[in-house]
């Protein structure tokens, strides 16, 4: 399960290989310092101009805020739970016209773009159906660990200890008491052809993963760690720094699953304590200081330690 990317044939060797073309254009209504926006921008660089984006309610629905659109690509905005199903319609609609009507194959790729609310909660059934049907599509979940667009309410992607506007910190509660749902394993159980976690602080890793996926057919799924300065109450300037801390502390493992075989694409050898990561965000501030919860902190660290032990690197 060790990293073995050095042998891979790739166009992306260093950051300098980041494609210059921009499909995400300036002037989006998204918050300053949005981590998920970097992920989308890089994903589109890797996937290119023939990508049709299917977007659903969530922050990135604002990438088409009338009369403007922030991406050069074609885009369809669909209801919350329907992203992968709408993608199916586009893929099938084009395919049948090519087969039946002798239409020239436009070579389109379809990318579903949703937040964690749609991916982990309300759209999980539609995603399950699409992967099961072997739909040839890409799914990028920008995971900011809560319903950000409605003001940061709990989602099943919210990690233990995070305060949200519906898991408030009180005398008897230390924020969210549930564990983050393991979407990677849920999706993996559907046998997609490609599945990966990505983080923008590792842009080369991310670009390579999209590159690798685009050489495959079938369902290609990505969960992008997405720092949310507004919801996490972090400094916009620290977005990439926090992203890096999540990777280095082991909170956000970077891995991929190719036809069911999981490889970690980056191993954080030192793994500093999770406090280093948690302290950068005021959504965790109650865990520190006089009234802080040593117990919750230990639980978070224990979960991370246990994860890395379990994959036996």
């Amino acid at each position: 399960m060790a990293s073995n990317q050095t042998t891979i044939d790739t166009a992306y060797k260093t950051m300098k290989d980041t494609p210059r073309e921009e499909y995400l254009q300036p002037g989006s209504p998204l918050c300053a310092g949005c981590g998920g926006e970097i992920a989308v921008r890089l994903a589109l660089k890797a996937l290119g101009p023939k990508t049709i984006v299917v977007s659903v309610p969530g922050c990135f629905g604002l990438l088409a805020l009338y009369p403007y659109s922030s991406i050069e690509n074609s885009m369809l905005f669909a209801p919350f739970a329907s992203g992968p199903a709408a993608a199916q319609g586009i893929v099938d609609g084009i395919r049948i016209q090519v087969e039946k009507r002798a239409m020239v194959d436009p070579g389109s790729k379809v990318l579903v773009l949703t937040g964690d609310g749609a991916a982990y909660d309300i759209g999980l059934q539609a995603t399950s159906g699409a992967i099961h049907r072997g739909l040839d599509f890409y799914y990028l979940c920008y995971d900011n660990e809560a319903y950000g667009n409605t003001g940061f309410q709990f989602s099943s992607a919210t990690p233990t200890g995070s305060s949200t506007s519906t898991t408030a910190v009180t005398d008897s509660s230390q924020g969210n008491s549930l564990r983050k749902k393991n979407l990677f394993e849920i999706w993996k159980a559907h046998n997609p052809s490609y599945l990966a976690t990505v983080a923008v602080s590792k842009p080369v890793d991310m670009l390579r993963k999209f590159e690798k996926a685009s050489k495959m057919s079938g369902s290609k799924l990505f969960i992008a760690f997405s720092v949310c300065p507004t919801g996490w109450r972090s400094e916009p300037r620290e977005t990439v720094k926090i992203d890096r801390l999540a990777v280095e502390t082991g909170v956000w493992p970077l891995k991929e699953s190719v036809n069911g075989r999981v490889t970690h694409t980056y191993i954080p050898r030192k793994r500093p304590p999770v406090e280093n990561y948690l302290k950068t965000q005021r959504r965790f501030e109650h865990l520190f200081g006089a009234c802080g919860s040593e117990h919750t902190l230990q639980e978070i660290q224990r979960d991370v330690d246990e994860y890395w032990r379990s994959i036996s690197i």
Partner: peptide, 29 residues
């Protein structure tokens, strides 16, 4: 250039970066 969320940094052919201030939101990443 790589980390600008809003594609507000453009590169000259020799990779000299330029910030496009009409749209830069000032996130300071």
């Amino acid at each position: 250039f790589v980390y600008c969320p809003d594609s507000c940094i453009t590169l000259e052919p020799d990779l000299t970066p330029h910030i496009q201030y009409e749209n830069c939101k000032g996130c300071m990443i």
